[in-house]
Design a protein around this nucleic acid. Sequence first.
DNA 1: GTGTTGATGTATCGTGCTGATATATCTCGC
DNA 2: GCGAGATATATCAGCACGATACATCAACAC
Lengths: 187, 187
Amino acid sequence: MLEIAVLGLLNESPMHGYELRKRLASLLGAFRAFSYGSLYPTLRRLQEAGWIDEEAPLEQTPAPSAGFAGRSKRGKRVYKLTAEGKEHFATLLAEVGPEAYDDEGFGTRLAFFAQTRSDIRLQILEGRRQRMTEQADGMRTSLARTRERMDRYTLQLQEHGLESADREVRWLSELIESERTARPPLG
Amino acid sequence: MLEIAVLGLLNESPMHGYELRKRLASLLGAFRAFSYGSLYPTLRRLQEAGWIDEEAPLEQTPAPSAGFAGRSKRGKRVYKLTAEGKEHFATLLAEVGPEAYDDEGFGTRLAFFAQTRSDIRLQILEGRRQRMTEQADGMRTSLARTRERMDRYTLQLQEHGLESADREVRWLSELIESERTARPPLG
DNA sequence: GTGTTGATGTATCGTGCTGATATATCTCGC
DNA sequence: GCGAGATATATCAGCACGATACATCAACAC
């Protein structure tokens, strides 16, 4: 999941790890932040795979007086997408695995919806709604079955969980609706 | 986190792994299920620590005709809390670490609130509210700062995340309020 | 009776992420 | 000139997931 997020951000503009992490946190917001402990290994993995490339480290900064542009402080590793990386990213965006339906996966995919094909968007939204509907139904059933046996707090926890799931289903339905309106099926 | 959940469930009644997993899933509901890949190693760890104990495996079931009670099919490992385990569980419930404020941790702690001291309950609820308030404020600020630059989908994601966080803060406030009413501060 | 499905039940493995920690450097105010 | 805090990279133990494997057992079908 980090892979697609990193490629997506680097697709917009080259960046170094620290900035990547900050943008990741503000982009995904509610859904997970990703720590450096996974970010740096991922960067190395992507580099080994040839998807991303390190801009010249510039051990000797030529002219410290020049304040603008080519800033690359010592130790700073600025990454950018390679041609293969762009292609790979496009491929990733065009396919939908089951991981696109869980919390982190869905959030990540949605963050790059602007660059995702309309039919894939719809598929992801519907898959996620399916998943959340099932989860909500499961909780509703469980609640109905064991309501009497549960203490006040467990009940509160479950009811809040159920309401959240229901809210998300409604939200997804709206997104799906507007997705369908914007690009009608066949007409 | 699995540790406290397992101890808590075994504190109610002895159980084997498979049942533990099912109860865990229905108890925590929205908040995580825990897979066998972490459940079984945890059970072994708890057993090595002496907090839980295995009821005799009964390699030879004495009377297969007897349909009730002492059922222990071959291979079934039924665990129960030891005296040390009960003590340890009580200790865990009486302390509050920072892990009690994240999603999984908070859900787990709340699931055993009925057995938790009132002042600890309040501390956990307020810590969680603090955390969620900060998260919501962070998202609000980020939204205000970058609203124009964001595409429709990122905006939707962030707004939904913000609403969820705000809803949880309100929910927590209600819980805190009723916690304070039930057991007034000093008066 | 035999076959096949689905639930029960225990177990391991590779992979990925977190949270803590270490270590520098840069920037800004004082 | 100096300390505080942001910037920046990196590693590690521990935990959890998802997949997978392998058995047993009840039920119902044919």
